[in-house]
Amino acid sequence: MNEILGHFNYGIVILLMMMGLYIVIASSNLIKKLIGISVFQVSVFILYITFGKITGGNPPIIVDNVDVYSNPLPHVLILTAIVVGVATTSVGLALIVRIREAYGSTDEDDINDIDKNDNFYLKNRSTT
């Protein structure tokens, strides 16, 4: 019982991760895919922070009268990972805007259809 309770957080987080991953794979809309990736990434962050937590611990800022601090290392790693995530999301969104302008659609299936039907079409995409 203790085992299940102790791993409960992890189980839910994995469910979140998989829901995020499902959005990425199953959606054909480009923006929704990107949202799915963000959800997936944030869930991984929750995973990291979960295993850094100590029951009865405190945030890792040194104050008097406190001896037990939760582990600072996962926090540092996730801070970095959040920034990497937002960087990727920004670039992804910029790409989607350009794709929309070039193809007229943000739906992957539509875009694939357009691509198949013009093999020798070298359109100069609109300049920025």
């Binding site: 102790g6 409960f8 992890y10 979960t50 295993f51 937590k53 029951t55 009865g56 611990g57």
Partner: peptide, 11 residues
């Protein structure tokens, strides 16, 4: 994994 919140976890 060690149980969540376990202070004896390796990390």
């Amino acid at each position: 994994f060690p149980n969540m919140g376990d202070a004896n976890a390796p990390i």
